[in-house]
Amino acid sequence: MPIKVDTEKCTQCGNCETQCPGDLIRMDPETGYPMNAYPDDCWYCAVCEVECQFDALRMVFPTLII
């Protein structure tokens, strides 16, 4: 967390990783899918969501915010 990836839809294109303003997302070397490598640094702007052309990713609010 705090992103949720629908692996049925995700093409592993990496656009979310490329555009995250905080540079928080990395492609998991084991699964190939995006993950938030620095969840404590998320501004919950959801750029990752709008940059996903496949509707495959959801931003999840940090626990201290929900």
Binding site: P21, G22, D40, D41, C42, W43, P62, L64, I65
Partner: peptide
């Protein structure tokens, strides 16, 4: 007030 370092008014980056 949340205690969340990146839960800021303006862009934390």
């Amino acid at each position: 007030d949340t205690g969340f370092l990146f839960g800021s008014f303006d862009c934390p980056f």
